[in-house]
Amino acid sequence: MDNNTLVGLAGILASAAPVVFAAIGETITERAGITNLSINGLILLTAMAGFATSVTTGSLLLGFLVGAVIGALVSLIVAFSSIALKQSQVAVGFVLALMCRDLSYFLGNPFMGASGPRVPPLPIPGLSDIPVLGVLFFRQDILVYASFLLIAVAYIFVYKTRPGLMLQGIGEQPATAYVRGANVNRLRYLYTIIGGALVGIAGPMYSLSVKVGWKGTITGLDGIGWIALAITIFGGWNPLRAAFGAYLFVLLQWLGLVLQPSLPNIPSQVLQVAPFPLMILTLLLVNIGNSEWVDRTLAGLPEELRRFIARVLRAMRTTPPAALGIPFDNE
């Protein structure tokens, strides 16, 4: 592998870090049974607010803190409207997605094109000199290390700890979890806020590291949140698989950029949206196994072929937490 490719791949790991944060944040929220549809606007708003904070105060840490707090607060609105006010999660989330986007453009106007701080790279002494792996994994900045850590922690938390099992419980069978002593709605608040804070960190990860600065509508972040929501489904609500989806998405984007010079007839805007049809296709692949007509069609096929297709579909298929989007009433 030549050095250019290696640097490119290292760049993919770095650009995917915010997507990993957003997708895992949403995964945790949805595991608890709440769909937070606001995250596309949330990423824009926190990117702007984090950047503005860091420009004004000179502190990177404050920028991320502000991002996390805004993420938590906006997500709290989703949780509160859904749990306490019994309003549609989709409706409230969608309105917040649009409103946060407009807020970011309106409030970010004075910071357009301002020069601000950037998170410095942090090579790990010793490890960064390992051939190949050093360039890939150990010459990144602290955010990329944090994204690796988040994948591991989220995976272990969801599948290997008691609170993680409870988290699965309140998303799958809230009534059972309630009987076993879980305060379902309080936990749903908690995980929506934690998930929202993680999404809120993804914004400043862009504006202070991956795509430094704030440029309003041409910042190019509009759409990332919707992709992160799709990755959550693609990931089957499993943090590990969600992270894989995030890397896959950024790899495809990078390929689009690399292929650009050899396809001069296709405007760059078209290659930029290439991930979206692929997103639909992957959602189709992970969902189609759930359809009844597929079973019926398969039944007519020769046994060998039927088994093969059924196995492939089952391997890809994902099913959402059973109580996703359904309010829980403990009476």
Binding site: W226, V273, I280, L283, S291
Partner: peptide, 29 residues
């Protein structure tokens, strides 16, 4: 996509929105 593919209309629709925009820009340029 929704009825036969099981793809939630929110995500199918969003993806197709971006495709439609790309199509417009491709036609114009």
């Amino acid at each position: 996509l929704k009825i036969y593919g099981g793809v939630n209309e929110i995500f199918g629709g969003l993806g197709l929105n971006f495709v439609a925009t790309a199509l417009t820009i491709w036609l114009i340029f």
